[in-house]
Design a protein around this nucleic acid. Structure first.
Lengths: 336, 336
DNA sequence: GTTATGTATGGTATGCATACCATTTTGCTG
DNA sequence: CAGCAAAATGGTATGCATACCATACATAAC
């Protein structure tokens, strides 16, 4: 299209003068300014940021790589990111990794080539290779939600362990002694943390943890359904189920409904992750809610700080508080 | 960082030869190729796409501007967009306009300056000024979900009118004669379409439409709640409520619950837009579901087609089918 | 009148990869 | 071994805006 030279020619000035008018920098006489502005309007000129981007090595864009934007937790996190980015003049590039290390690596390579200023990453796996690749290229990177092994990097996450501890304590206070733990995958730090918090509460109450009550599986509805059925038929007769995330909780509820069991009379349920109030017509699940939007905001702010202040301070972990919301899915142990 | 010159120097070749190795184009001897590849690995060189972007005027990125990614409908649409974009090597830039014309205009200006290849837009308002600005700059643009006045542009949307017609017919078949319509804003084409479909079904059934039964308001939960209360107290004693979108439906359900009215015995409800099955523990709402993901996909494909094939074919409207899903929120009119 | 300061404008180089054209080298045919 | 095509490699220009330095003029101060 039309470039700064065209405008300069029409206004009979040098390109740099047009630049000064656009950016309101340096000295420009009123007469010249008006002439330039007229030329800009006449040609419908839009400055091309690619030139400066190339020269000054900043594209004013960051990437948000989540596992799946369709998961309401990530939707909200992403919204928090975009809020901060746009308020600071940055564009947000959306990437879904679908928990695939390969897709993630492919995306990261593209992002590097596009000279993205910084990356917010929910790691698809425990593998730190991708992350090291980014850090080697000196691109600021903040990891979201999950800890990663063998690499020093900024992390923003919620206090899963504390959340799990509180939920478990809540169940214990209601008289439950056999609490099944439907955990996520062993390879994910949040899952390990939640189990740790659960175990901690049990120990504190002087209850011997039982490995058979812990069901490591995926963070999915199917896994929740599958394992809840096992819990129901378990010889250990658990009276409460701890769902490690919202999808597992939904699967669990479906399994209980299938077996015509009542919540919380036949079985209490607690879960980590809230279900957005907008979608659940009757919120009844007792949860430890992670501050999704805040997580996105805080992470984006940390990232922008890293981008703007080049000095490499040591990586930090920001751990956000979790809020326990007690609703009707958890009740007293009636079977003693 | 390191650039193609550095690699060339280390491998003792010309930059163009490095380029040939990277892009697998032209002739390169095996010996040279290996030397170049070695140099790339040694320096950790990543090609900078900004150069070619500047030169060839394509950034391989498109923007998805929705009103709010937090609305599950737009989440899903966006996911569909991202799927198509990434499959074609394009990055997706996420923008939330929050239904603000000003925020939208600001974003669009930035997008133009960044030389985005194309834009998918859910217009914040009926005002076509923003759209004309983009089209003037010859940037491919596809409008999503809503028709816009006074401008010829590609649109991809669902058949709101048909969906509303089917839902209304369904209610009529159940014996309802006084059906309240909780519509969206008059300025949005989807809202007008849904009212039109509703009126069409009534007319066909020989029922005189009553303007007092139509509540034009926002597409929000609050509006749904507010107007549902009015409907309940209405002298016209409606036996069914048509919620023009999912948020209005949720507000409506809350209002009914507050008044301890039973669905569907005291009041039937139907709505446009489904609630994602993942979040609703017991799907019970009779809806006309819009194909959200498909809408995103189709729109992105159309946009990419426009980007790749420069010839300007006349703008087209693609209208996607809506699926009616009958659940338990709609039942026979028991009050006759 | 001369020097200093402020105001106004412009020339050139820069960042990066690659299309285009040019040149050299290799390998093969007659 | 000449002659030619194919293979291999390189030089230069391009796209765009702006930092940096340079220049020119006006006004004020001495």
């Amino acid at each position: 299209m039309t470039n700064i030279q065209d405008v300069a020619k029409l206004a009979k000035v040098a390109p740099i003068t047009v630049s000064r008018v656009i950016n309101n920098s340096g000295y420009v006489s009123d007469k010249t300014r008006k002439r330039v502005e007229g030329a800009i309007a006449e040609l419908g000129y839009v400055p091309n940021m690619l030139g400066p981007s190339l020269r000054f090595k900043q594209t004013m864009s960051i990437a948000a790589m989540v596992t799946d934007i369709t998961n309401p937790f990530w939707t909200t996190v992403t919204r928090g990111i975009e809020d901060v980015a746009s308020a600071n003049g940055y564009l947000t590039i959306l990437c879904n990794s679908d928990e695939s290390e390969e897709k993630q690596a492919l995306y990261l390579e593209t992002l590097l080539q596009r000279q993205i200023d910084g990356i917010l990453l929910v790691p698809a796996s425990n593998d730190s290779a991708s992350i090291k690749r980014i850090l080697n290229q000196k691109i600021p990177l903040v990891v979201l939600d999950r800890e990663v092994q063998n690499v020093a990097v900024d992390v923003v996450r919620a206090d899963s362990q504390e959340g799990a501890y509180l939920l478990t304590k809540h169940l214990l206070a209601l008289g439950h002694r056999h609490i099944a733990m439907l955990a996520g995958p062993k390879s994910t730090s949040t899952s390990v943390d939640r189990v740790t918090g659960y175990l901690h509460a049990l120990e504190e109450a002087g209850i011997e943890p039982n490995d058979d009550l812990i069901y490591w599986d995926a963070y999915t509805q199917e896994a929740g359904y599958r394992n809840a059925k096992r819990v129901i038929n378990s010889a250990l007769c658990p009276t409460a189920i701890f769902a490690a995330n919202n999808f597992i909780a939904i699967g669990t509820i479906q399994a209980l409904k299938d077996q015509e069991l009542c919540v919380p009379d036949d079985m209490s349920i607690v879960a980590v992750d809230d279900i957005p109030p907008t979608y659940s017509l009757e919120p009844f699940l007792t949860v430890a809610a992670q501050p999704a939007k805040e997580m996105g905001r805080v992470a984006a702010e940390l990232l922008l700080d890293r981008i703007k202040n080049e000095e490499d301070k040591p990586p930090q972990s920001i751990i956000l508080d979790i809020t326990m919301i007690i609703r009707s899915s958890s009740g007293k142990n009636l079977k003693r």
